[in-house]
Design a protein around this nucleic acid. Sequence first.
DNA 1: GAGCTTTACGAAGGAGACCATCATTAGTAG
DNA 2: CTACTAATGATGGTCTCCTTCGTAAAGCTC
Lengths: 386, 386
Amino acid sequence: MASAAPTGGDLSRLRQLNSLAVFGALRADGPLTLTAVAERTGLSRPSTKEVVDQLVELGWVVEVAPSAGTIGRPARRYRFRAEAGHIAGIDLGVHTVRAVVSDLDGTVLAETRQAVTPATPNDERIAAAERAVEGCLTMADLAREDLWTVAAGTTGIVDTAGVVRICAGIPGWAGVDLTARLGELFSCPIEIENDARLAALAERERGVAKGIRDAVFVHAGRRTGAALVIGGEVHRGFGGAAGEIGLHPVAHWERSADHIHDCPAVPAGVPKRDAARHTFAAARDGDPAALAAVDRYCDELAVGVSAMVMTLDPELVVLGGGFSPAGDVLLPRLRARLEEVCLRMPELRASTLGEECVAVGAVGRAVARLDAKHFGLTPGGIAPAR
Amino acid sequence: MASAAPTGGDLSRLRQLNSLAVFGALRADGPLTLTAVAERTGLSRPSTKEVVDQLVELGWVVEVAPSAGTIGRPARRYRFRAEAGHIAGIDLGVHTVRAVVSDLDGTVLAETRQAVTPATPNDERIAAAERAVEGCLTMADLAREDLWTVAAGTTGIVDTAGVVRICAGIPGWAGVDLTARLGELFSCPIEIENDARLAALAERERGVAKGIRDAVFVHAGRRTGAALVIGGEVHRGFGGAAGEIGLHPVAHWERSADHIHDCPAVPAGVPKRDAARHTFAAARDGDPAALAAVDRYCDELAVGVSAMVMTLDPELVVLGGGFSPAGDVLLPRLRARLEEVCLRMPELRASTLGEECVAVGAVGRAVARLDAKHFGLTPGGIAPAR
DNA sequence: GAGCTTTACGAAGGAGACCATCATTAGTAG
DNA sequence: CTACTAATGATGGTCTCCTTCGTAAAGCTC
């Protein structure tokens, strides 16, 4: 594609490239000796040394104690200094606001949650997010100034500027400029993205979709939604509306979860947040009403999922969201429905990440952006250094 | 991200990168002076000179006569030597086998077609392709040895090895190893791909989808199919089955075109290949039967298209295939159906490329692969030179 | 038509980044 | 205590790029 040809450059650009390669090797594979780094990057030892020294000077890398017990002169070892900066990830959910604080590796250092309701006013919801982050910072013994990025995920469709455009779950949430609101609280860059997409990103980076290029992520829980991983990247769509197949009248996922929540197998008086667990437990015990509810739910889920699968032909479909622990109940039924229509059946897996996956995905997103910024690496290519 | 970090390299790699940048500038923007190339690539003049000299020596670039009438010393000008190699693109269709021969710019030099039927035996169909290419070569005064690549598109699902896996339109076509069959006839590398995807590629490169990152391509003609452009690349899917939404029972595009072909507005005795033209003409004249047929057709088309649109949220939907000249009739109706369901309405355009779009797309595919091979450029990134 | 301006060419010198090579060093093994 | 092993650190060479300079070939002005 000559139109988007990577611009060449001078020697410093080459150094930048090699720097990035060394940095990537160190970050991906933990503490490494110089020889190991050289092997991984294809550089010679002297060059590797020079690059590593530079990275040490910049504070990205530190030397660690050599590993004892080896034959020959012990090699100096280096590792990525993940503690050089920190990131806050926020999940602005309908019923819960979660936050995590992580280092630059994405390792979660602290994690908090605040209960809210759909009726919680916007200001109060933002304040809950602030408290959640503040709690994490306290737990991790950090200050706001230590944060390099705050990334947040929210239900609904968010534009590239971080303004909520459409949101079904939270009345009055549409129109809120999250970048601006969070920008008032934190002086670092703010990233806003749709929650299902961040969950998909988390699966792609550290969940069951690790290493998969093309996957469909289904958020099955109190809300039903979807997100796509294409070519290893989470697909946003031109207007940020990718994966909203659930709003298609044929699928109509808006009320699908009701089959699970309003099932007769749920004892009276059980709060809504626990209803699903009862339904799935009853289904495992063979309760006919629960099984019927699960069947109906899977039928509706399958309509949208099959449309996405036949559109994209992904390698994998991930079942995520609050219902994902019930993968043993849901996946066989979903698989049966899909096999009836799909030309090529993708693999099906249930997510194993916990409920903080959106916040973790937010952190992943922020890490990717920081990489791009500090190393001139755009996702999937080399961009001119500006 | 770090897992797929671009590997760095030595000085020769830098030269390779700059070579590629210079090459890209020359190919994209026609004959250029050294200063113009230097400006475009960001390189200094002496370096540019050296790189260009090298490219001239390798035969990729030639000097052309300086443009007269300018002030100052006339600058030497160089251009990409598109005639350095040639490519054959083949469209192995159900009713027609087409071939084009192009230079390395993708400029079509010759074009031929051979009529076939769904019942044409495989050997005869391959032989028709051979004759079509041979005809092009004669017209362009070339020999088989001048071909650097032969790329072909065919109906159905093709695996990465070039074997037809599933094909509805041509009985007995499934199982044919096209790479092997064409490899017996031509000694150059062979590329095989699904025809709708190649048509989409042609639209992306020189049609109405030029410069668009995310688009849905609908092949509307005697067969109905689709292909996707995501992130500027044609999306293949894990098993090569992306875009096969038409096989979903809800869409069932297999017989959709019959609405147009079997319309009562078509005079008796009109051969099937001309039926559609009559139906669309009658619809333009307000014939109720034709309008009803068009409505039914668009209804069915819209089911599949809306599913793809809501999955991907593309910027653009392209109507291609044999029915695309009837865009004036089809697009308003299709738009109306889509507007009923789509969250964000994409733009709709009818293709303006002719019937040879599949063969042209095949050429485009071959050009992209040649780039990757000769310059170590993988689509969207820098790969280690192996 | 001579001289000026403009633009491009080509050569020389310098800096940065990479590599290969070799003597040296700090451990373990016997 | 010696032999062996593997990493270290320093030296010199090569490649690619950049900057700077004088030179060359056109048009424009008087």
